[in-house]
Design a protein around this nucleic acid. Structure first.
Lengths: 193, 193, 193, 193
DNA sequence: TATGAATGAGCGTTCATTCAT
DNA sequence: CATGAATGAACGCTCATTCAT
């Protein structure tokens, strides 16, 4: 509802900050509203309910990952390079928005099953692009033709996700982006033909 | 507090069943008590609070993984075989206790940050054994000497975890144990010297 | 405030329809505005507040009853006939406007005490005419001279009201107007000299 | 749920007092709890929800009317006397509990349609006894054989109800019980053979 | 006159924990 | 050891009303 108006993004950003600072279960609608500088009721002019705020946070932010990755696919044809840029992009976006990193890696996972299923739907689009990298990599004989696509996808995403979560849990005290080449090297060894 | 008495385990098992059936947020203390066949107040003779039940569930069950993995380390010296048996053990235990799989992969992750940090402490012991596999594998020139142990550990654990979570989210409809050799092959390609 | 302008009646009618369709507690100002084809704010150019809309609905519609009854008093002098025409008029108006019947008999009664007192003030005018019928009937020795006017009025109005409410609660599935002679007969037996 | 425990009646009585003092819409659960001298949560050990409190108030209190009327039917066989005692009983109970009178005649009628339908179910039992008075009165040739039972019932109940409501609206400043003989005389004239 | 986006006060209900028995 | 009745803090959402345009 009215996703183009400035207040929509204002509230989304306020939600990220509020959740990062207070934790998922302590991010009351009234706190988000105050952070956004609007009245409680105004939230409901832009979002159906609290769950809708959270899924929207994820959708809006995930769109950045997906858009970037799509651009990578358009520019690069080499599977190894595509994978490298995917990892780097993923790391960079979260490295640059530490609040968002906390929210996606720790807080949003505390949501109920219903919200989690919706989050997975949003994630699907991103993972589909990863599948494209893998499938085309195999076609081009760059990646191992005996790969099980689903397993390979789970390894790539699981590794990236676990790496970032560890980084967040260690209070983001080391440089995440620097890890990209090593993570890439590790994964590509498992995948290459 | 009295962890040896039969009611302690009774309540732990009741918690797993209750959470698996009702979900984390619908697993009230009173439901767990009823499932365990005790009064609500009795719970508090054996556990400090609700969080203590959940962390105990994780600790008790994780002990099985760790104990099995320790046995593997005692029997095998070959890093590849150790890794294979670790994966297989992990898959098998959760394949055989579908309730537990739901609880560890989906429900327990909805807990607050505080509980999650405690869960990570428990997990540490298991991951330390994984580090032993990797370190000794490198010493024996079986694994790549340039490996970053932490990253390698995150890849192995992240891949296993993601694989199991996908399986649970797909309603456990395919055979998880059968995936072990493929997951192992994928990981060992990334790790081997 | 500007009761002659067309929008005033537009809003009144919209209120009746909205309340009849959605019930008193679901008849929000915004719904009434939409039904009337005006903006929410416009309502407040014609009515002081929501309560004012509702009391106006009652006043406007009650005026029809009172006007009709006044006409009856002018035409008829016979108490029994006056009473008969009063009952018939009351039944007929509500029989012909089923929305209005629902609103006056069921929905408007859910309003707070304050509004109910105001409604009673409006009703007074109608009941005063009923008192005229009774008083003049007694003077003309047509009605029982020992009648307690207030009680007699309460019986007449209570019976009419209860009859209509029952009809509405039974989904208006029988013919209300047909009941008029029987109701009249019953009442006149109690009142006649 | 546990309707026999003393707290059940405590809460019922507290609800009557709270509603009478504050009005239906200002009778919050927390106020009722405070009046009853229990914690808010305790209410929900005895009632499913707020609506359940209100319908229980009506059910418990209506039971008194019905029980008394049943006793009258057992003792008297004369229709006129039965009717007189019914009116007197009805008047007396509400005259002696002014809070209850306010609640039943004014406040409880503000409830939503759903609650009103449930209240009507409870009322049905009482009205069925009234039907017995009328039917047996006709069989015994004491009442007019051409009576339409439904209309007669509506007249009797409508008159009683309207009389009491007027009395409550006039701040209960005259003696209600004294009106019983006159109301009875009026009604019996309409009904007698 | 007319609009409609923004406001913000208000409340029923749940559930982890306690403690008298 | 065991019970379970009682507690009470905490929060998402609605909607009548306003006011800048």
């Amino acid at each position: 509802m009215r996703r183009d108006k400035p207040k929509y993004k204002q509230i989304i950003d306020a939600a990220v900050i509020t959740i990062a600072h207070n934790g998922y279960h302590q991010a009351q609608v009234s706190k988000i509203a105050k952070e956004a500088g609007v009245a409680d009721g105004t939230i409901y002019l832009y979002f159906k309910n609290k769950e809708d705020i959270l899924i929207s946070v994820f959708r809006e932010k995930m769109a950045v990952f997906t858009k970037n990755l799509q651009a990578v696919l358009n520019q690069e044809t080499d599977a190894s390079m595509r994978l490298f840029k995917m990892i780097k992009n993923h790391f960079r976006v979260l490295h640059e928005d530490r609040h968002l990193a906390i929210v996606t890696q720790l807080e949003l996972r505390q949501s109920g099953k219903k919200l989690r299923l919706k989050i997975n739907e949003v994630l699907r689009e991103y993972l589909d692009l990863l599948d494209v990298i893998l499938t085309e990599g195999i076609e081009q004989k760059e990646l191992d033709s005996t790969l099980d696509i689903r397993l390979a996808r789970q390894m790539v995403f699981g590794t990236i996700d676990e790496t970032i979560t560890s980084w967040v849990m260690n209070d983001q005290k080391y440089d995440l982006i620097e890890l990209a080449p090593k993570v890439h090297k590790l994964l590509i060894r498992a995948l290459k033909a």
